[in-house]
């Protein structure tokens, strides 16, 4: 490991669409999945990441480099994460949360999940459906029954035509 040799080690990561990326080991081990591979000695050659595409991996690596450059200061890390995610659309966020889950990066996972949750906060059902392209497969009777069951959750929600 890098810590033992004293020189920074670089790892090569391969996305599922065969793009190669170099990243400092110290940043890459933010991913518990990668850290385990490094510790098991499987990181000698190219590390294949079968569940992450090149575009997403590039973004995750930007995050790894950015966050590992910040010293132990939770506030600064948080503001970096907020800034990093601020311009991402939902498609990108969905790719990121899947990648973070696969790579076992809890801090990124939480940040992206919270960001998606923020969009849903206090919003009507109709609004959330449209925002995320969720198709309503309930019959009107079924939907009314589910709503009735949880009637208390519909008070004080932003009104919407098809709420």
């Amino acid at each position: 490991m890098a810590a033992e040799t004293g020189t920074p080690t670089t790892l090569t990561l391969k996305s599922n669409d065969d793009e190669l990326f170099s990243v400092a080991e110290s940043a890459a081990i933010l991913s518990v999945t990668i850290r385990n591979m490094v510790e098991d000695g499987c990181a000698g050659g190219v590390i294949p990441l079968d569940n992450v595409d090149g575009k997403t991996l590039a973004s995750v690596i930007t995050y790894m480099n950015g966050i590992s450059a910040i010293p132990a200061d939770e506030e600064k890390k948080k503001s970096y994460r907020d800034k990093f995610l601020s311009d991402k659309d939902f498609e990108t966020l969905a790719d990121m949360v899947l990648a973070a889950n696969y790579l076992n990066m809890s801090c990124l996972m939480d940040a992206v999940s919270a960001k998606i949750a923020q969009v849903m906060e206090k919003k009507s059902v109709g609004w959330v459906r449209r925002k995320f392209g969720i198709e309503n497969d309930y019959t009107p009777e079924e939907e009314a029954a589910v709503k009735e069951e949880h009637k208390w959750t519909f008070e004080g929600v932003e009104t919407d035509d098809d709420n």
């Binding site: 996972m109 939480d110 939907e143």
Partner: peptide, 27 residues
């Protein structure tokens, strides 16, 4: 796309919501 996410991830997203907001997703 969001509905296709694994349940663990959906739980993580709902984790950040109040009970009202989380329950309302059932509709």
């Amino acid at each position: 796309r969001i509905s296709d996410l694994p349940k663990d991830i959906l739980h993580r997203i709902l984790y950040f919501l109040s009970q009202e907001d989380a329950v309302r997703t059932s509709v």
